[in-house]
Design a protein around this nucleic acid. Structure first.
Lengths: 184, 184
DNA sequence: TTTAAAATGGAGGAACCCTCCATTTCATTT
DNA sequence: AAATGAAATGGAGGGTTCCTCCATTTTAAA
């Protein structure tokens, strides 16, 4: 009998082991860790890993899934308290911090976020919602796109990785994006 | 006799051949092209290439050197005509366009710009000068740093690479950073 | 010419990637 | 509970790129 994932139970067990091993190794050594080692720690053949996650990005997307889900939920929960601009600020800050979880996840963010897992879909939908609402309220320029958000978050995360900066730097960089560098 | 580079003439000749080959291949196939192929096109052993340019970044910095030099000069030439804010805008736009010359140069911009070649020094000095001047004139927030410029340009260039966007997109993204996304 | 310092090239070991398929395991049918 | 076929497995192996190392060659000074 197969459970709801549609995988055989042995396959599903291995899938979980791969996810656990990947999560650990990404945390320890960054998102570029050799996949052979992920397979080894998961006690699974490398072929099995590739069968389940054909690309590194898909594996990254899978390990990010829950984090993205809870980010999206947290953003919705904040909704009532904040004005549109503040909601976007909080969303961007949290996404940037999350993207700094693994060294060199940032470079893949654009791809990862399009991967179609529930978490990726949720975080994308939420970002689009916040953006649309802020634009309807006239709080954000009409020519800003969700893609701009992703680029900005990637840039900020890359910056963070490089000099291993504190959280305050995220706030500075998000501010920069939101307010512009020019005094007026 | 050695010329001013301090290299033996055969070594200097090979260095030039490597630079020419690298420039060609980076343009054709991006900044990640195998270095063996650069060596082959330069008609030089791979060992010679590594002796002269121990890392890919150093080779990138060397091929970017003249471009950076002329960008810095052009920026200084614009100086008279523009107000501080416009000078920065032009500087960022040109640097972003230049950084999109080779596919995947963007990711290395931060490292490349610190490489110490004359061109890297010139572009850094010029950026710092523009920034300081704008800040003294009160046109740019005091907490903006030159590192922010580099992050911004990287983000823009990564965006450009991804969807192979037209120049108008550079302008949009630079505007975003200069003015912020929030209406006021 | 001689000499030694500088430069060379490319073989080869290591790291990582990813495919392929002979074998094993699971779930269903009889 | 035995048989059956679909699903899953693992890891050998071929490919790519990296980078070091050193026996040989080239240059330039003595």
């Amino acid at each position: 009998m197969s459970d709801k994932s549609g995988l055989r139970v042995d396959a599903e067990r291995n899938r979980q082991q791969i996810l656990v091993a990947a999560e650990e190794l990404f945390l320890e050594r960054g998102a570029g860790v050799p996949l052979d080692e992920v397979a080894k720690r998961a006690k699974v053949g490398i072929g099995t890993l590739y069968r389940r996650f054909p690309t590194r990005e898909e594996l990254l997307a899978a390990t990010s899934n829950e984090r993205f889900l809870s980010l999206a939920e947290a953003s919705q929960a904040r909704d009532a308290d904040h004005d549109p601009g503040a909601a976007i600020r909080a969303y961007l800050e949290e996404l940037a911090l999350n993207t700094s979880t693994y060294q060199s996840l940032a470079a893949s963010l654009g791809t990862v976020v399009e991967c179609g897992t529930p978490g990726c879909n949720a975080i994308t939908a939420e970002g689009n919602r916040l953006l649309r609402r802020a634009q309807e309220a006239g709080a954000v320029h009409a020519d800003v796109t969700f893609a701009d958000f992703i680029y900005v978050v990637s840039a900020i995360s890359i910056a963070l990785e490089k000099d291993n900066s504190p959280k305050t730097r995220v706030i500075h960089l998000v501010d920069l994006f939101l307010s512009g560098i020019i005094v007026r």
